[in-house]
Amino acid sequence: MKKNYYKKQRLGTVIRTVILWGFMLLCIFPFLWMIGASLKKEPDVFQTPFTLFPDYLYLDNYAAVWGGKYNYAQMFGNSVFVTVISVVVAVILCCVAGYGFARLKFPGRNKIFILYLATMMIPGQLLMVPKYLMFREMGIYNTHWSLILPACFSIYGVFLMRQNMQQIPESISEAARIDGANEWQICFKLIMPLCKPAIITLVILLFTWQWNDYDNALLFLQDKDLYTLPLGLTYFMDETGLKYNLIMAAGIITIIPIFIVFLVAQKYFIGGLTAGSVKE
C-alpha cells in the first residue's frame, strides 16, 4: 500500500516535470530563436530543415549593429543616461516622500496621501496627448528630459516606501531625536538603510520600466541621435528591412542588461513585480 503510494507520487513528479519543462521551453523558444538567428549569416536565418543554432558563430552581426552606420552604441548610451538619472532621482524622492507620509505628522497628511494614491489609477496612455502638447510648450519635447523628468516621480514608489517605513518601530526614531538628530538625518542615515530590501526592489522595478519604455520615447523623441534602445530597435527594423540576423542581434543587445539584473536579483525581481502589480 505505502510503496504504491510513493510510486504514484514519484510518477506524479515526473509527469509534472515533463509537462512544465515542455511548457517552459515553449515560453523561451522565441528567445532561443533570437539568439540563434543573431549568430547566423543572413541566408541561413530561415534555413530548411529548421535549425535553432548554426554550427558556426557569426559575431559580425553584433559588430555591425554596435558600431558603424547603425551606431547602436550611442543608443545604448542614451538608454543608460536616461535610466540611471531617472532611477537615482526617483528612488531618493520616493524615500523622502515615503518617509514624510509614513513617519511625520502634519495637517492633511492622510488626505494628501489618498489623493496621491488616486492618481495611480490614471492610465499613462491617457496622458499621451496632453503630455505631448505640454512638453512642446515647456521646451522639453525632443530632449531626454521629456523621458527623465516624468519618471523622477513614481507614485507607486512612494506607496511602496511608505508601506515599508511604517513597519519600522517609532522608538528607533525617538532615540535618534533625543540624541539631537533632525528628521533628514534620521531619514537618510537610519531609516533608509533599514529599508534596503525595499529600495533594491524599487530600483529594479524602476530600472525595468524605464529601460523598456517604448511609448514615451516614441512620442517625445524625434532626433535619431536621442533615441533610446527600444525606439532605436524599431528604427532599426525599418532601416534594415528583412535582415533578421541583424535585427535579432540588436534585440539581444536591448535585452542583455535586463537579463543580467534579472538573474542576479531574481528574488527581488519576482517579489517586487508581484507586489508591484499596480502598474502594467
Binding site: C27, I28, P230, L273
Partner: peptide, 12 residues
Amino acid sequence: GTYLPYVVNVVA
C-alpha cells in the same frame, strides 16, 4: 523561464 518574457521590452 516562464517569467522571462515579462521583463523583456515590447519592441524586441
